[in-house]
Design a protein around this nucleic acid. Structure first.
Length: 606
RNA sequence: GCCGGGGUAGCUCAGUCGGUAGAGCAGCUGAUUCGUAAUCAGCAGGUCGUCGGUUCAAGUCCGAUCCUCGGCUCCA
């Protein structure tokens, strides 16, 4: 694919990871132009904002006075885009005089372009798309780069339409964002659409219902009800995380839900996070009534860290206790905006494999190294890859550069000691300390943020924590906020989609379903059920009078890993005929062999 | 919270121009006792998210509201 790069200045190809990335960038950005041109052909009054490439596609933010587009309008825009592609207009870049362009944009009623122009340094350039067919030339202020001609933007599809604030600012006007995807070839476009459809089939909300894992109810928005199957998955996971951490030298605690507002003032949440805190006045009173007298405000915890600060500060601490690793699976509440809630990925109530490590500064690198080993062990067990980044000091930060140098150095040392290949996100750290970001990749190659490791120098100071060092002087501990799977709610959502609902035996809520061919085999069926139950296998019994084919179909629908078919032959031999969800008919084996098989596959692999 | 979709039986969905609410699956009952992805018949199942309005008449039109979906935003 040809691009216009050679003709342009101010663009460095090295800004892109690869030649392919660069070409896709050009293609996607160019197709955004084609879409904007199409929209302006259909709606001449359309005001354009920005139209950047994004992962797998592009969007363009557009405002059309008095017109609200809906997804039904996308096909008309696509049709117009096809014409533009067919006209094979060239993309012609030209540097222009900013004053003249500004006048033109004002005259054309393009307030967003004007606003952008005023924020740009010279040189200012426009992109022209002359059409031989219509004789018109479409112009957009743009820095490029583009492909050579609109004919290259052939394999596109518009996907959705959504509201988006101008410059992401909710006090500014809301524009209409049109999303599309585009690929160099028809095959790649088809593959992408196929991938979207596959992802839809795996949607954890759909599978959650199909597999009876969880539900939601209008009366508790953003809070999952874990049904028996889902609760099993939750429990297996949470229990394993807990036992793993205990064997890694952590201690577990359980802490309150409700705290006096003073705690949140101390931690800083009241100033910085109040809108996400569920809080209310203490005392007895009814709806609409004012609480009598001086009632203190209670807030539900959105994080466990303040509780753990209180525990650490509850008595004199010695350096000999460090590192003190405090694990807490407490339930957390965050008052997320109603419009932000989404399945298990964005909830108001959840719990985490949370822990805070109190340590001395010279213990940080060791702790980081240990943590990284755990993260790799856990995600390796799920067959998930990851990319790791070190996020360094942001512009607005607390603490001097010397402190940050040491903090970033300690994280870097931990990463290097484990031989981890990591990137740097400059300035992406929290204001209270640097952090390590983990991007976890699932079976469809989609990234998720679950694990987190953050250094915090500020919170212990706010709580005036200290320990007595070997030098008999008081020192302030450093805190490491860390979670491996993060919110169990979100992580189970990710797992459901990663496995497409086909949980491995160790995680499957129902590991085996025993099913009889006819009622003549009921007795042996019950014996098999009892044997499996006695071995601790999660097993159910389908003793209905449906045909075996029906039972198998039903069982596949629930994605149970093993079916134990019991007919006359098995009854006579005292065996079971095993059908695997993933590998089909496995033939006949003894009950004892099957129990052993399920038990060995049921062992948690981390 | 904001913009735009959506909410009809347990689930998936149909319902035309405003004129007596439908299907498949699931459920229940009965028949059937069957060997690896759907046995047959019958029955039952609904205040069309909720509240209000327009109308002789509202699932359908209007308004409000709740939930949900796609985004924005937020995630110190």
């Amino acid at each position: 694919m040809e691009t216009s790069m050679d003709k342009e200045e101010g663009f460095d190809r090295n800004d892109f990871g690869s030649e392919e990335e660069y070409r896709l960038y050009c293609l996607r950005h160019s197709t955004a132009h084609v879409m904007a041109q199409a929209v302006q052909r259909l709606h001449p009054a359309a005001r354009l904002a920005i139209g950047p490439p994004v992962e797998d596609g592009f969007y363009y933010d557009i405002e059309i006075p008095d017109v609200t587009l809906s997804e039904d309008d996308l096909s008309a825009i696509e049709a117009e885009m096809k014409k533009i592609v067919k006209e094979n207009q060239p993309f012609e870049m030209e540097k222009v005089d900013r004053v003249a362009l500004r006048e033109q944009l004002v005259a054309a009623g393009q307030p967003y372009k004007v606003e952008m122009l005023d924020g740009f340094d010279d040189p200012i350039s426009v992109c022209r798309n002359p059409s031989k067919k219509t004789g018109e030339t479409w112009v957009d202020m743009c820095a490029g780069p583009h492909v050579m001609r609109t004919g290259q933007c052939k394999h596109f599809k518009l996907l959705k339409i959504a509201g988006a604030y101008w410059r992401g600012d909710s006090t500014r006007p809301q524009l209409q964002r049109l999303y599309g995807t585009v690929w160099p070839t028809r095959e790649e476009l088809d593959q992408y659409i196929f991938r979207l459809e596959e992802a839809k089939k795996r949607d954890h909300r759909k599978l959650g219902q199909q597999l009876d894992l969880f539900m939601f109810h209008d009366y508790s928005p953003g809070c999952a009800f874990w049904l028996p199957n889902g609760e099993t998955v939750y429990h297996v996971l949470a229990d394993r995380m807990r036992s793993m951490l205990l064997s890694e030298g952590y201690v577990a605690v359980r802490t309150p839900q409700l705290f006096d507002k003073k705690l949140w003032e101390t931690s800083g949440h009241w100033d910085h996070y109040q809108e996400n805190l569920f809080h209310f006045a203490e005392g007895h009173f009814h709806e609409g009534e004012e609480a009598e007298g001086e009632n203190r405000i209670l807030g539900m915890k959105p994080m466990n860290c303040p509780s753990h600060m209180l525990i650490f500060g509850s008595r004199k601490r010695s350096y000999r206790e460090l590192p003190l690793r405090v694990h807490d699976q407490g339930v957390l509440h965050r008052n997320e905006l109603s419009g932000a809630l989404s399945g298990l990925t964005r909830v108001r109530q959840f719990s985490q494999d949370d822990a805070h490590i109190f340590c001395a500064e010279d213990q940080i690198a060791d702790e980081i190294e240990r943590l990284l080993e755990l993260v790799e062990r856990v995600y390796g067990a799920f067959g998930m890859g990851m990319k790791i980044h070190l996020s360094t000091r942001p512009a607005e930060k607390l603490g001097d550069d010397d402190l940050w140098d040491r903090a970033e150095g300690a994280l870097r040392e931990g990463l290097e000691r484990r031989g981890i290949d990591f990137g740097i996100k400059e300035g992406d750290g929290a204001f209270y300390g640097p952090k390590i970001d983990f991007d976890i990749y699932d079976a469809l190659g989609r990234g998720h943020q679950c694990a987190t490791v953050q250094l915090d120098y500020q919170l212990p100071r706010r709580f005036e924590l200290s320990y007595v060092g070997a030098d008999n002087a008081l020192h302030t501990p450093v805190v490491i906020h860390r979670a491996i799977v993060g919110s169990f709610e979100r992580f189970i959502g990710v797992l459901i989609e990663h496995y497409a609902g086909n949980f491995p035996v160790w995680l499957a809520p129902e590991q085996v379903r025993v099913m009889t061919v006819s009622e003549k085999s009921l007795e042996h069926g019950r014996a098999v059920l009892d044997a499996l139950r006695a071995a601790g296998v999660r097993v159910t019994f389908d003793d209905g009078d449906a045909k075996i084919g029906y039972k198998i179909r039903e069982c596949h629908g629930k994605k149970v890993p093993y079916m134990a078919v019991i007919g006359a032959k098995e009854t006579e031999d005292g065996t079971v005929a095993i059908r695997s969800r993933d590998d089909g008919d496995l033939g006949t084996m003894t009950v004892a062999d099957f129990v052993e098989k399920v038990r060995s596959e049921g062992v948690v692999p981390f």
